[in-house]
Simulated assay, not measured.
Amino acid sequence: RERHFGQWQGLHLTEVAERFPEEYARWRAGDPDPGADLEPLHDLGERVGAALQEAADAAPGGTVVIATHGGGSRQGIGHLLGWDTAVLRTVGSLANCHWTELRHDDVRGWQLRAHNVGLITAPVAVDAV
């Protein structure tokens, strides 16, 4: 599940900016806990990180593929890596259909192998009939 947006759930950003101007300004500035009952980024990271760890534990030594939203993924991965929210702000969100690759080593723990990777496809020429 993506981040819970509290009192903002179901609203358009224009409505949020109008109804919650102070919290919206804090959110846009990167405040990890801007108010309005938004799920704090730390809590999101713990929740998603626990789910990622649980999936990895279910397939020891194997490969696990998880589909998720970019924000939740970034925070969950940061939790596994032990990165602070301020560090995670420097890591871009995942673009659509892109992925992050992690690896776990029993000695070094979780390692980031790749982030925001996607397939690059060339345009295909189609002959008109």
Results as ranks from 00 to 15, higher is better:
residue 43 D to P: 00
residue 54 E to N: 10
residue 8 W to V: 06
residue 77 I to Q: 05
residue 122 A to G: 00
residue 27 W to D: 00
residue 16 V to R: 03
residue 74 R to I: 06
residue 44 L to W: 03
residue 3 R to D: 03
residue 90 T to L: 11
residue 119 L to W: 05
residue 65 V to F: 09
residue 27 W to S: 01
residue 66 I to R: 07
residue 93 S to E: 15
residue 40 P to E: 07
residue 45 G to N: 09
residue 121 T to G: 00
residue 55 A to C: 11
residue 33 D to A: 15
residue 62 G to Q: 13
residue 104 H to D: 02
residue 95 A to E: 09
residue 126 V to L: 12
residue 97 C to L: 08
residue 1 R to Q: 12
residue 53 Q to G: 04
residue 102 L to N: 09
residue 104 H to A: 04
residue 2 E to T: 07
residue 80 L to C: 14
residue 16 V to T: 08
residue 16 V to H: 08
residue 80 L to H: 10
residue 73 S to M: 15
residue 45 G to P: 12
residue 36 A to M: 04
residue 25 A to W: 09
residue 80 L to N: 12
residue 104 H to T: 05
residue 79 H to M: 10
residue 61 G to K: 08
residue 107 V to N: 07
residue 29 A to N: 11
residue 36 A to L: 07
residue 84 D to S: 15
residue 76 G to V: 02
residue 115 H to T: 13
residue 105 D to T: 05
residue 117 V to A: 14
residue 106 D to Q: 04
residue 31 D to V: 12
residue 43 D to S: 11
residue 84 D to T: 12
residue 105 D to Y: 02
residue 72 G to I: 03
residue 10 G to T: 07
residue 76 G to D: 02
residue 5 F to A: 02
residue 71 G to R: 13
residue 69 H to C: 14
residue 128 A to F: 00
residue 24 Y to F: 15
residue 88 L to I: 06
residue 115 H to R: 02
residue 43 D to Y: 02
residue 18 E to M: 10
residue 36 A to K: 02
residue 111 Q to F: 01
residue 82 G to V: 13
residue 41 L to E: 15
residue 82 G to C: 10
residue 49 G to A: 09
residue 90 T to V: 01
residue 4 H to E: 13
residue 26 R to F: 02
residue 79 H to N: 15
residue 46 E to W: 06
residue 48 V to M: 12
residue 67 A to G: 12
residue 92 G to R: 14
residue 113 R to D: 13
residue 110 W to V: 05
residue 34 P to R: 06
residue 111 Q to S: 15
residue 88 L to F: 03
residue 44 L to Q: 08
residue 64 V to S: 06
residue 71 G to Y: 01
residue 18 E to F: 00
residue 84 D to G: 07
residue 91 V to Y: 01
residue 19 R to P: 12
residue 109 G to E: 12
residue 95 A to S: 12
residue 45 G to H: 07
residue 29 A to S: 14
residue 59 A to V: 15
residue 97 C to S: 14
residue 61 G to Y: 05
residue 7 Q to G: 10
residue 27 W to N: 00
residue 64 V to I: 11
